[in-house]
């Protein structure tokens, strides 16, 4: 992105305050860059270039260094994500128990490829390597919740649950208005 454009993008104030408070609470700021990026991703949802620049200024380190770290680790994302993140395990235990087919089902149901966000903005799906619940293979994690022994049928049921919940929330907020 061009410099002139960047300067104009405003990050929400209250989120910046939260990030600032976190950074101020740390002693070894530079050594904890990864920690800070985790926190920033939690606050902003993703690490946009603006957020990365902001952190580089706050820590007084080159933006290239921040970008270098962000792009190295697969846990960090530079794109906005859907409301829920589905992490489909493609580790070995899940692979031998048919995780490829489960991933395919998720993707077909959402109409996207792995790594993308569904049109309604509700789900982002990505494949990850082992979430340590191999005993329940095949496994996926939706946000922080683990779902085990997945089948083509249960994938559909789980997605429906989230969709229904979303509908209820929307209805509720409409009736409040």
């Amino acid at each position: 992105m061009e410099r002139s454009k960047l300067a104009k993008v405003k990050l929400p104030k209250e989120k910046l305050v939260e990030l600032d408070a976190f950074i101020d609470s740390l002693e070894d700021k530079e050594g904890l860059l990864i920690h800070i990026l985790h926190k920033a991703q939690e606050i902003f949802g993703y690490l946009s270039l603006e957020v990365q620049l902001y952190i580089s200024k706050r820590l007084d380190i080159p933006a290239a260094k921040v970008f270098g770290v962000v792009s190295f680790y697969s846990y960090f994302t530079q794109e906005p994500r859907g409301k829920h993140t589905i992490s489909m395990c493609m580790g070995t235990a899940c692979f031998v128990k048919g995780s490829e087919q489960i991933l395919e089902t998720f993707c077909n149901e959402l109409g996207v490829k792995s790594g993308e966000t569904s049109k309604d903005g509700l789900f982002t799906i990505k494949d990850v390597r082992c979430i340590g619940a191999c005993g329940l293979a095949p496994v996926a994690m939706i946000d922080d919740k683990v779902y085990g022994h997945l089948t083509v049928e249960s994938v559909k049921e789980i997605l429906d649950e989230y969709r229904k919940e979303e509908q209820n929330e929307n209805q509720h907020s409409e009736s409040v208005i």
Partner: peptide
């Protein structure tokens, strides 16, 4: 110190770099 999804960071020299807050090479 939290990792951030890079298998190579299990290797001890890479892990140390990652713990220092830089790319885990």
């Amino acid at each position: 110190r939290l990792g951030a999804g890079a298998f190579v960071c299990g290797e001890e020299t890479a892990l140390i770099h990652s713990a220092e807050g830089v790319r885990g090479e």
